[in-house]
Design a protein around this nucleic acid. Structure first.
Lengths: 222, 222
DNA sequence: GGCTTTAGGATAGGAGCACTATCCCATTGT
DNA sequence: ACAATGGGATAGTGCTCCTATCCTAAAGCC
């Protein structure tokens, strides 16, 4: 199919498709002649992926490009998925953290490269997760420290419950992404899945809060 | 203190403060004379709240206004916190959902106002939460249906684990927000807490996924 | 062979958002 | 009295994600 049809089938204007092309999110079609290019099903899937990443997960073009470059660069599946993690967790190396605000207090009670007494240690041991350094690991430590600093501490029990749930889900996710027919679909599953789970949590939290409030003041507002 | 000092102490430019004033996020100072107004500590706290809502939670001005109007409108604390929930969950009545994308399949296997067999029923019963209609409740049902439709289903066990954790946290939150000295701080705790928990989950999920991947392929990339 | 259609590159325009900068004037304090 | 200041009004900026217009050259079609 060519540009026009791709646009019609995807529901995305040719202008936007050209834009994605320019931005390197979508690979150029196979140039049949100098003025005609042919696109395939994978272009369609790619567009769906871009759309989902933008609209559902809320990523920016730059971030999407980071993921898709890895995917198109021939990186192994696991590495691409690691990139997805990094982006969704907003800890892209070159992106850096921009929002430090005025914090609440100093930095945090953890040293620099201190290997002992990291906030996440307990979970890792409890779940018997490999205790090796990773982006996710340091992100976890940072998050726990951050929450501590903001006055929203996390109890070991809660951390336990969270991590148990995550352990289960991670297994399923691995299976889902392994089953995914192509890399694009694996990315979609991974990114959308992560986002959806955190949204789900938010909704459950809200419901739990409402329930507690009702119980405590029985009859209050939702 | 007056504008200048408020700006200096909060680290926010007078221009921005004037902007917030105009947008109705910050209440006008007490007009000492026709050209001089006095601001108090609560203005400072309000600015911190606005800042946190913008930078940490990522809300827009409009959304912040929704919350703060409720707070300034003299609504009872619980109602204001319910508003916070609504906004953070992105289910502001008038905001509506804008992203339906092209979905994945039809709509969802749930009827319209069907009172039976809602996806969230199991959790509610399990946790013994009051089974009354609420924004959070319908948000949960919608989220579960949405995830189902997107091919990211949630198993009962996972839902169980999540809800158990949320039940615990909600209790703590209620306590924290009840303890909060003023409404602004309660809002901050509530909004930041919700956000932080969902971020924490994301990080734990990432770590769990990485761990599973490592275990399965032992020695792969993070 | 000529004429309309089309791809795709270049470039500019536009909408939304969160500010930011400028202007202005009345008051204020010295 | 006169420079300084607060605060209202208004316009502009920077960023992002598109969208619209123009253009050229090749293609297809008769």
């Amino acid at each position: 199919m060519q540009l026009n049809e791709l646009s019609a089938r995807s529901g995305i204007s040719t202008a936007s498709i050209k834009y994605y092309l320019r931005e390197g999110l979508l690979r150029p079609g196979e140039a049949v002649t100098a003025t005609r290019a042919r696109y395939g099903e994978h272009h369609l899937r790619r567009l769906e992926l871009i759309q989902a990443l933008r609209q559902i997960v809320g990523l920016g073009i730059e971030q999407i490009r980071t993921i898709l470059s890895a995917a198109d660069g021939g990186a192994p599946r696991l590495e691409v998925l690691a990139t997805v993690q990094r982006v969704v967790l907003q800890l892209e190396p070159h992106g850096a953290e921009a929002h430090d605000a005025k914090g609440t207090s100093g930095e945090a009670p953890r040293g620099e490269g201190v290997a002992s007494a990291r906030p996440g240690d307990a979970v890792v041991r409890l779940r018997d997760w490999p205790d090796e350094e990773s982006d996710a690991r340091s992100a976890l430590d940072a998050q726990l420290a951050h929450m501590e600093a903001l006055g929203v501490p996390v109890s070991p029990e809660v951390l336990d419950a969270y991590s148990a749930a995550m352990d289960t889900i991670a297994g399923l996710d691995l299976q889902l992404t392994a089953e995914a027919a192509d890399l694009d679909r694996a990315i979609l599953t991974a990114a959308v899945g992560m986002h959806m789970h955190s949204q789900l949590l938010l909704k459950l939290l809200a419901l739990a809060q409402a329930s507690h409030a009702i119980r405590r003041f029985h009859g209050g507002s939702a």
